[in-house]
Amino acid sequence: MNRVLLVLFFCAMYSIYGQNSAVAAGEKLVYTASYNMSGVLNDIAQVTLETSNVKTSKATLLHLKCKAVTYSKWDNFFKIRDLYESYVNPKTLTPYLYKRDINEGGYAKNVKYTFSHKTNTVKTVQTKKDWVEKKDVKINSGTRDIVSTLYKIRLFDFESMQVNAKTSFTIIFDRKEIKAQITYLGKETISTAIGSKTCYKIAVGSNESGVLKGNRDNVVWLTADANKIMVYGKFKIPVGNGELKIKSATGLKN
């Protein structure tokens, strides 16, 4: 009987957290990243989150892409051209391949992680200029890359969560596993570029030093509808706040 209950529990959990009911191919979300100091905003970069289908001979995967591009006025000072990609299972958003190509003010780095969920390992290849470094990293079951985690958060059933309920997950970043946590802070209606939206307010935090420090300093607002897209994000930085505001949203699933 206990085993049956256990199986039912996992099935229920899988249906709540597992199935992708929010993310579809063809979705494009455009954000403006700004620096806010005492209410004075400075737009720094445009962040784009895109999804598309990728067909291989064996399967059709979902390609999640995150791009960060500085506005032209910043290009002469500190040019950023970052590309983060993840190829995931369209049903569960489980990652198979993660790629990161960053170019920030002349500093360039290329990272590739190939996930093997059977053996719980990640094959990593890191390239800096001409220096290539390969390393196999052991991961825990359920560990994801940062891009697929961003999308996976949208599959959580916040409606059934209590205020201040916490959920933990593990992210692999810079070949290290980072324990992160989200706290559901309740619903809030905010005004955005795509209209007034009732949102789930979620605090994102980590216990690791230097990464998303603090519990309530980094907060994101996800629309309280079936799409659960992020419309606003606020991040604490040494002087002032960093903000991520939605500019446009197209190709949504629901």
């Binding site: 291989t56 064996k58 399967a59």
Partner: peptide, 8 residues
Amino acid sequence: ELEELDIE
């Protein structure tokens, strides 16, 4: 080995 990963 995607065929083992239950993708349509």
